[in-house]
Design a protein around this nucleic acid. Sequence first.
DNA 1: GCCGTTTTCGGCCCGACTGTTTTCAGTCG
Length: 578
Amino acid sequence: MTNHEIARRFARIADVLEIQGENPFKVRAYRRAVDAIDALTEPLADIEARGGLENIEGFGEAIIGKTRDFLRTGTTKLYEQLKDAVPSGVIEMAAIPGVGPKTAKALWEALQVTSPEELEAAAREERVRAVPGFGATKEKNLLAAIERSRRLSERLPIFVVLPYAERLRRELLGRPEVGRIELAGSLRRGRDTVGDIDLVGISSDPDATMEAFTRLPGITETLIQGPADTAVLCDLGLRVDLRLTSPENFGTLLHHFSSGQAHNIKLRDLADEKGLKINEYGVFRKETGEELFRGEDEAQVYEALGLPFIPPELREDRGEIEAARRGKLPRLITEADFRGQLHCHSTYSDGKATIREMAQAAAERGYAYLAITDHSRSLQVANGLSRERLLAQIEEIRALNRELAGRITLLTGQEVDILADGSLDGDEDVLAQLDVVVGSVHIRHREDEAQMTARVLKAVENPHLDILGHPTGRLLGKREPFPIDIEAVIAAAVRTGTVLEVNAAPERMDLSDVYARRAKDAGARLTVNTDAHSAAGLGGLMWGLFMARRAWLEPDDVINTFPIDRLRAALKDAAARA
DNA sequence: GCCGTTTTCGGCCCGACTGTTTTCAGTCG
């Protein structure tokens, strides 16, 4: 069984147990197991084969046993007992925002409704209000919740949501009583997709700010409204939460709503050990209730616990608190660390700027080098370069380098298609001349995992390939990653010295955070590039930086932070070792 | 069900908002 299949079965167990009213901590244990599996890149079968299940956090005796059952037999006793104990439709009912497990169970038992559709019909027929604990208002709200759930979006790519959230932020900042508004939640943590928008702020008149918030352009509905917490629906189909407080309490509020839930839970556990209590209004001594600090600086939360500051991107409970305690937090890469980029396009293929314009833009950004990597000959839709045009481009770049000497160094290169058989779309003698060869899959994504893995592995083994570009081919919101054994690709990259790209194009963000972290842990080197098709495009590193920082990458892990001599050595190294 | 520099048993983050069973349970983040 795949990790995904096992995770879905544990999730099913959690859903059923929750509706049955089981111990909520047991339910949480199964949900934690689901999250832990989702964060893995290695198949559970492989982990089991090397005896590693015990090391997965949240995996205890019972869950390890059930995981082994799933791997060996495809099921386990508890799953067989539970899978039909609660109708799927009742689980769907419970999953509707605002409904929940207790409500779903009560209405299932009282009215025998077993799906959102049946529940909707019962509410329309005013049968819900007769159930003990329910009334006409709840019945009306239930109908609204069901209708709303059909309009709700799934998670959306961050590049869609971030500009929208910034617009809401600016509108709120325009009000006189508002002192500060910041983006929090998964937007601030830089997740590739976002399920809601979290805003936190300071207001001297929260009621007025909240009222105005519910009337902002694009806000379609108010879900809850209070002076500290108001939630609305926006026309992206996402929930937007605004939390307000005073300047004294803003630091802890910002911290709380910028961190993943699991991070907060673990942090509060740690506080408990130290005789402290954390909530979104402060850090307090448990005994005396004394408040340890006030103010707008969220770093004080960590100081109070004797920890170094943990950047938002790391706050996912993926080992950051343990690393902080040991003083082993990474020095996360920043935009200022970059000395150049190794993957961009010019008017030679499908870019909008000439090589000279790209060079000037890169120099203005303070870069020491820029590799021009236009598309290869077979990618005709992108005006891929023939052998002759590529040779001409190399000449042009050499001439430009003489002219630009002292300002910036252009590197010759190409983004070469990885063809269906895994060979590179170029002539060996030309590839050997280039400073940087990026290899990418652009055609035939739909091969099966074995074919795609063999194809990419062959390219990685190719001595001319320096960088594997956008390794999984995903397009956020449009196309899933193609099926590939990423573990095998990473291992081959480590062995051959091939550099793995974190492509920063907003719709790609590829490698993802999880895979990039895995690559780093396995000893691979990485590069972060905008894949710019215009001069302005070179400014779009932030999307890749979100992934890189969430992957714990440090400047030393990313070769385009190196000075040019070290960079050249790293690339030569790749060719020599392969 | 998980977990342990007080513990192998007895805890498990914490608070806002809502509707109603009027003192709190349910839901959410």
